[in-house]
Design a protein around this nucleic acid. Structure first.
Length: 433
RNA sequence: GGCGCUAUCGUCUAGUGGCCUAGGACGCAUCCCUCUCACGGAUGAAACACGGGUUCGAUUCCCGUUAGCGCUACCA
């Protein structure tokens, strides 16, 4: 039998990293099993559902590369199905009316159990479960009811969802029973936690995929990171491509414990992907980022931008971080770090050295890293100072920061005119007289 | 409160009774590379919540305690 799973977001907010991980697990399972991954929109909350959220959710899924099979189903378009099923339950005496609402009767003292693929046997007593609203007074089905009808109608074989749904499961099982339909296999995956170990939410920081995308995380890194939250391929593997994830994915290897969302590790992973990404992939993303900031002009040579990217990609976590570090290259503003200025520029003798450095660079014929380095080292020798005494102040003068790539390469991409004027400007305005 | 789920380094995890003096990764520390930072390389500190069982032997199985989280809506 072919496996069928679904991802069923409700368009009442943007795509949360927890939901994205649920979608990813469903998708990986479907692709691994060569089954189907369906998309269902649970838009029965008329006041909270918004088209812009739907658009954002679909966009985020596509960004991650989680393509779905077939047409998207909308619960709001299946209203007659739900009411028909509820009416049937009504005539069979398994449900009753309360005003316009239809309520499902729960017989107390019954034990409901199911075999969860990650938790094993789970049991509930119906004593703990109240009668369940199936259809609300406004004619809309409730979550638990619509979910059962749809999963059953669309022959979903595995329901893979967050642990927070575990106590919904007996309620749904009771409905399956009343409907005389076979329930799917349930797979409850552990929640993604914030730094205080409670369920990840807005107060922990960015929670929507959209935000991570905007910060300049790569979708491959995000997928890899999310896949390893609550699942592991076994062994020591950490960096896996989408193909490898599909190949390795196995529901049996899903863990039982909640996983903290560790931004530090995500940053490391994104750096790894950034570092290994091809220019073909990176350049369009960088260009997009620069445009957003109005740092992009037609005068920028793609080859030059590529040089800058090469120079910085191993030392940035995100594209946003890339912009922070390269602001001095793309704009005329130098983001001076006060500590760097204090440490490297506000020191005796620095002004004179920077001026001499600038003068020598002025008469330099070629403008490449090797020539600049040769000039720098020969000046240092004449001045009888270490090259570092020239390098460090110059880096702060030109980039505003004490840290960054090789100075000679930075100066090479900065351009001759700009380098010299910045060196002189720093010597005159920032150094002690 | 009731019900449910969970419990290995700070974090993500490997581990399914002896291979564990518990492995990897992030982070941290030190060192190498070096003009700084990052990358890369090397080394180090760092965990089986607690108490009972079961067993020749428990991180691994069972029970309890504790703690954390989740659910307890005519939200999904």
């Amino acid at each position: 039998m072919s496996m069928r799973v679904r991802f069923a977001p409700s368009p009442t907010g943007t795509l949360h990293v927890g939901s994205a991980r649920t979608a990813l697990f469903n998708w990986l399972f479907a692709r691994h099993e060569k089954g189907q991954f369906l998309l269902r929109i649970e838009d029965t909350d008329q006041t909270r559902s918004k088209p812009e959220f739907l658009k954002e959710i679909l966009g985020s899924l596509q960004w991650l590369g989680l393509n779905w099979d077939g047409e998207i189903e909308y619960q709001s378009r299946r209203l007659p199905h739900y009411t028909a099923v509820a009416d049937k339950l009504l005539t069979e005496g398994l449900a009753y009316k309360d005003g316009q609402a239809i309520i499902f009767k729960v017989t107390p003292g019954q034990v409901v159990s199911f075999e969860d693929l990650v938790h094993g046997q789970v049991q509930f007593n119906t004593l703990e479960i109240k009668d369940q609203v199936l259809v609300k007074s406004d004619g809309m089905p409730t979550y638990n009811f619509a979910c059962v009808v749809d999963d059953s109608d669309f022959q979903i074989t595995h329901v893979i969802r967050g642990d927070d749904h575990i106590s919904n499961t007996p309620k749904q099982l009771l409905i399956y029973q009343a409907l005389k339909r076979n329930p799917p296999i349930f797979v409850h995956i552990p929640l993604i936690l914030g730094t205080d170990r409670s369920r990840l939410s807005k107060r922990h920081g960015a929670t929507s995929l959209q935000e991570y995308r905007q910060m300049g995380y790569l979708p491959e890194a995000m997928v890899n990171f999310l896949a390893l939250l609550g699942w592991s391929p076994g062994g020591d593997r950490e960096l896996l491509t989408l193909e490898e994830l599909i190949h390795e994915f196995d529901l049996k290897r899903i863990g039982k414990t909640g996983a903290m969302f560790d931004l530090t590790k995500l940053n490391w992973m994104n750096n790894q992907y950034l570092k290994n990404a091809s220019l073909e992939e990176l350049l369009p993303l960088v260009e997009e980022k620069l445009s957003e900031k109005d740092w992009w002009t037609d005068k920028l040579e793609p080859a030059w931008v590529a040089e800058v990217v090469e120079l910085y990609k191993s030392r940035v976590d995100t594209l946003e971080d890339f912009c922070r570090q390269t602001q001095g290259l793309f704009t005329d503003e130098i983001p001076f770090d006060p500590e760097a200025v204090e440490l490297r520029l506000k020191q005796p003798g620095v002004a004179g050295r920077l001026k001499i450095f600038a003068e020598h660079l002025q008469i330099l014929q070629a403008w490449d890293a090797a020539s600049i380095e040769a000039a720098c080292r020969s000046i240092a020798e004449q001045l009888k100072v270490k090259a570092a005494e020239l390098i460090h102040p110059a880096r702060v003068a030109v980039t505003g920061r004490a840290v960054g790539p090789s100075l000679f390469h930075v100066l090479a991409v900065s351009g001759k005119e700009r380098t010299i004027s910045r060196l002189l400007h720093a010597a005159e305005t920032l150094c002690p007289s």
